[in-house]
Amino acid sequence: NQESVVAAQLIPINTALTLVMMTTRVVSPTGIPAEDIPRLISMQVNQVVPMGTTLMPDMVKGYA
């Protein structure tokens, strides 16, 4: 089963992602794949992401 990127903390809107903000977990439905974490660093979220929420492609500016 593929791991997806999950918020390790509350991420406010327009925050640039850092490694410490993200963790990985096997979730359903699947979100952004864990191997894309290096690509996500410094990208901004376009909404508030509560802790434990799976990051979906449409939540990250410039990802999709």
Rank of each mutant, 00 (worst) to 15 (best):
N1D: 15
N1R: 03
N1Y: 11
N1K: 04
N1W: 05
N1H: 09
N1C: 13
Q2P: 14
Q2T: 13
Q2H: 06
Q2L: 15
Q2N: 15
Q2S: 11
Q2A: 15
Q2K: 05
Q2D: 15
Q2I: 12
E3L: 05
E3A: 06
E3K: 04
E3Y: 09
E3N: 06
E3C: 10
S4G: 04
S4I: 02
S4H: 02
S4E: 00
V5Y: 02
V5P: 01
V5N: 01
V5F: 01
V5D: 00
V5G: 01
V5H: 01
V5E: 01
V5I: 08
V6C: 06
V6I: 07
V6R: 02
V6N: 02
V6D: 00
V6G: 01
V6Y: 03
V6E: 06
A7L: 02
A7S: 12
A7N: 00
A7P: 01
A7Y: 01
A7H: 01
A7V: 03
A7C: 03
A8E: 07
A8H: 11
A8T: 07
A8V: 06
A8L: 11
A8W: 07
A8F: 09
Q9G: 05
Q9S: 06
Q9N: 06
Q9H: 09
Q9D: 09
Q9K: 09
L10N: 12
L10R: 12
L10C: 15
L10S: 11
L10E: 07
I11Q: 00
I11E: 00
I11P: 00
I11S: 00
I11K: 01
P12R: 11
P12Y: 08
P12G: 15
P12V: 03
P12F: 04
P12Q: 07
P12L: 08
P12M: 12
I13R: 11
I13W: 11
I13K: 07
I13N: 14
I13G: 09
N14Y: 07
N14S: 10
N14G: 07
N14C: 08
N14D: 11
N14E: 06
N14V: 02
N14K: 08
N14M: 08
T15D: 03
T15R: 05
T15M: 06
T15E: 04
T15S: 05
A16Q: 09
A16S: 05
A16P: 12
A16E: 09
A16H: 05
A16L: 04
A16G: 07
A16K: 11
L17H: 00
L17G: 00
L17P: 02
L17Y: 00
L17K: 00
L17V: 03
T18L: 04
T18M: 03
T18W: 03
T18H: 04
T18Y: 03
T18E: 05
T18A: 07
T18G: 04
L19H: 11
L19C: 15
L19R: 11
L19D: 03
L19G: 05
L19Y: 14
L19A: 12
L19K: 08
L19N: 07
V20H: 10
V20M: 07
V20S: 10
V20D: 05
V20A: 07
V20E: 04
M21F: 15
M21G: 02
M21Q: 03
M21T: 04
M21K: 03
M21N: 04
M22W: 02
M22G: 00
M22I: 13
M22C: 03
M22E: 00
M22T: 02
T23W: 14
T23C: 05
T23D: 09
T23L: 13
T23E: 11
T23Q: 13
T23H: 13
T24C: 07
T24H: 14
R25N: 05
R25T: 04
R25D: 07
R25V: 15
R25M: 15
R25F: 15
R25I: 03
R25K: 15
V26M: 13
V26S: 13
V26T: 15
V26N: 12
V26C: 15
V26F: 12
V26E: 15
V26R: 03
V27W: 03
V27M: 07
V27Y: 03
V27F: 02
V27S: 09
V27P: 00
V27D: 12
S28W: 04
S28D: 15
S28Y: 09
P29Q: 11
P29M: 09
P29R: 03
P29N: 10
P29F: 11
T30C: 15
T30N: 15
T30L: 11
T30W: 14
T30D: 11
T30M: 15
T30I: 10
G31M: 03
G31I: 03
G31P: 00
G31V: 04
G31W: 03
I32F: 05
I32P: 01
I32D: 01
I32T: 02
I32E: 00
P33Y: 10
P33T: 14
P33S: 12
P33K: 07
P33H: 08
P33C: 14
A34Y: 07
A34L: 14
A34M: 10
A34S: 14
A34N: 06
A34Q: 10
A34G: 11
A34E: 10
A34H: 09
A34I: 08
E35P: 09
E35G: 07
E35A: 13
E35T: 13
E35L: 05
E35H: 12
E35R: 07
D36M: 12
D36V: 12
D36E: 07
I37W: 04
I37V: 12
I37F: 05
P38Y: 06
P38D: 05
P38W: 10
P38M: 07
P38E: 05
P38S: 07
P38V: 10
R39P: 02
R39D: 03
R39H: 10
R39Y: 11
R39N: 06
R39Q: 08
R39V: 06
L40M: 06
L40Y: 02
L40V: 09
L40G: 00
L40I: 08
L40W: 02
L40D: 00
L40S: 00
I41C: 05
I41A: 06
I41S: 04
I41E: 06
I41H: 04
I41Y: 10
I41M: 10
S42K: 08
S42N: 05
S42D: 05
S42W: 11
S42H: 09
M43L: 12
M43E: 04
M43Q: 07
M43S: 07
M43T: 05
M43K: 09
M43I: 12
Q44S: 09
Q44D: 04
Q44I: 07
Q44W: 09
Q44L: 14
Q44H: 08
Q44Y: 10
Q44T: 12
V45Y: 00
V45S: 09
V45G: 00
V45C: 04
V45Q: 00
N46Q: 15
N46R: 13
N46G: 14
N46M: 07
N46W: 05
N46T: 11
Q47H: 13
Q47V: 05
Q47L: 08
V48Y: 09
V48N: 15
V48I: 13
V48H: 12
V48L: 14
V48P: 13
V48G: 08
V48R: 10
V48F: 09
V48M: 09
V49W: 02
V49N: 00
V49Q: 01
V49M: 03
P50K: 14
P50S: 09
P50F: 14
P50E: 09
P50Y: 10
P50A: 13
P50M: 14
M51Q: 12
M51I: 09
M51A: 07
M51K: 10
G52T: 06
G52Q: 13
G52D: 13
G52M: 14
G52W: 13
G52K: 05
G52A: 06
G52P: 01
G52F: 14
T53C: 12
T53S: 13
T53L: 13
T54S: 06
T54K: 03
T54Y: 03
T54M: 04
T54D: 01
T54I: 10
T54L: 08
T54N: 02
L55S: 01
L55G: 00
L55E: 00
L55P: 01
L55W: 01
L55N: 01
L55Q: 01
L55Y: 01
L55A: 01
M56L: 08
M56T: 12
M56H: 06
M56A: 12
M56F: 07
M56V: 14
M56S: 07
P57Q: 11
P57H: 13
P57A: 15
P57C: 15
P57V: 12
D58S: 15
D58T: 15
D58F: 13
D58W: 14
M59H: 07
M59T: 04
M59G: 01
M59E: 01
V60S: 00
V60F: 13
V60T: 02
V60M: 05
V60R: 01
V60Q: 00
V60G: 02
V60W: 02
K61F: 05
K61M: 11
K61Y: 09
K61W: 11
K61R: 10
K61C: 14
K61L: 09
G62S: 11
G62K: 09
G62M: 11
G62W: 11
G62Q: 08
Y63C: 15
Y63F: 13
Y63P: 03
Y63T: 03
A64V: 10
A64N: 09
A64I: 15
A64C: 15
A64K: 13
